[in-house]
């Protein structure tokens, strides 16, 4: 079947979608957007977190067909039109909150959502918001630092749904 939806601000179409396949597969394997990561395929790790109609969800638990006509924003969509990083991405790099980086795209989306809802989150707010994002490397301390420092930066000028950058980093 064919699925069309807005992805990172651009209208996209995928053909030959198997009705049981996930939005995560559709993004990575059919639309060439490997930002959202595939780690557990059962909603446990959060590395596939993307916005679906403005809410962070596990892309591995959304059927591709359920995204028809919807708005998807993955980590690639958070950078500005000029390729500038979002404040959350900046903060993760500055704080050294990235080791292997596999959990990072999902965390960036989850933190982006947290800061859009709560401008100055408490540590309890941060832990609650990130309960569904597992990191096997960092021990979370640097991630906590990154979220606190992102919250202290002015919100990025990058819009929430800017045009994606074809040929951007994979």
């Amino acid at each position: 079947m064919r699925v069309s939806c807005r992805v990172n601000g651009e209208q996209r179409e995928a053909d030959g979608v198997w009705p049981g396949e996930s939005l995560l597969y559709l993004l990575r394997e059919r639309l060439g957007l490997p930002g959202a990561k595939n780690a557990c395929e059962q909603g446990e790790c959060g590395s596939c977190t993307v916005y679906l109609d403005g809410l962070p969800v596990c892309a591995c638990l959304v059927a591709g067909g359920q995204a028809q006509g919807r708005e998807v924003v993955a980590v690639e969509g958070l950078t500005g039109p000029d390729g500038g990083l979002d404040r959350v991405q900046h903060a993760f790099l500055q704080a050294g909150a990235v080791q292997c980086g596999f959990c990072t795209p999902g965390l960036i989306v989850a933190v982006h959502d947290l800061l859009a809802r709560v401008s100055t989150p408490t540590d309890a707010d941060i832990r609650e918001a990130l309960a569904g994002n597992l990191c096997r490397c960092t021990g979370y301390e640097k991630i906590m630092d990154a979220v606190r420092s992102a919250a202290a930066m002015p919100p990025s000028t990058a819009a929430a749904c800017p045009a994606s950058r074809p040929g951007g980093p994979r």
Binding site: P19, S22, E41, Q42, G43, C58, V62
Partner: peptide, 18 residues
């Protein structure tokens, strides 16, 4: 889909239709 997709992703279920 938080129960259904886990079953589909792990090949535990192949319904005729969703």
């Amino acid at each position: 889909g938080t129960d259904v997709m886990v079953e589909l992703n792990f090949d535990r279920r192949r319904p005729s239709a969703l």
